[in-house]
Design a protein around this nucleic acid. Structure first.
Lengths: 129, 129
DNA sequence: AAATATTTTCTACAAACGTAGTGGACAAAT
DNA sequence: ATTTGTCCACTACGTTTGTAGAAAATATTT
């Protein structure tokens, strides 16, 4: 099950549902807050489209508003988007990507330590033979 | 000058021109090769649209096919896309992004060293005062 | 010049996106 | 029950994207 394409505007909606679900449409709207300046109906439209895409599903609850919950796992969507991004913008090559994002990362020293550990591990697992 | 939005399909065209320019439409088509399976006219349409977006420009040459050349700098486009990607998919937070892409990066030990240097620098530039 | 190949300009058209309005259905409050 | 508020199903509509055909304008070859 390839995760469906989630459009730019749809991402915040998905994030909301990944953070907490199931939620009714108005709960989603409340969670998103006024920051986006979206009319309620806009959010409902996005929810409908996400249902059609198979990204989320409806939970019918007798006598009360419908609820929505993710079907696709966030991690899968992140992976898919990341892969496509890597290919498209960095020609599929991780190193330049990592360099790019390292430059402006403004991480704390602990975060840097953690990352370096990861990098070391990625070597070890690579040159196994 | 904010770089204009370059769509998914348009990126390979831009890359071609960033690699070598100016090129005529058919040179672009040749450079792209048959891999994409695009009709020539498709490529021409993309070129026209990129001109309209201000991403590339036409160099008129009397008595021979028009040539196209980038107006926007690759690095600016990469930066813009990267920022939007970081915000959208990783909630603006570099660390998870770096972790994600480190995992499957399969870098050589030298590359890892280089990256670590960059990470260290990003600390230093942060706590400067 | 006539025929042929190439280039360029227009037009097309469906799917996806961003953004929402309308109007009916249903539930809650008076 | 009537009003009022909420929810939801439909419809709308301009833009961007992916993909290209048709036809006119030019250039090239014979």
């Amino acid at each position: 099950m390839e995760p469906p394409n989630i459009s730019e505007a749809e991402w915040p909606v998905m994030e909301t549902l990944w953070d907490a679900s199931p939620l009714t449409a108005s709960e989603v709207a409340k969670a998103l807050g006024p920051a986006h300046g979206w009319a309620d109906n806009t959010i409902r439209t996005m929810l409908t489209r996400l249902v059609n895409k198979g990204a989320i599903e409806i939970r019918e609850v007798a006598g009360s508003p419908k609820q929505f919950a993710p079907v696709v796992v966030r991690d899968d969507c992140v992976r898919a988007e990341s892969e496509s991004f890597l290919k498209r913008i960095f020609r599929g090559s991780s190193k330049p990507l990592l360099l790019h994002f390292s430059r402006d990362a403004s991480l704390t020293p602990e975060e840097v330590r953690e990352l370096k550990r990861f990098l070391d591990e990625s070597i070890r697992s690579t040159d196994s033979h």
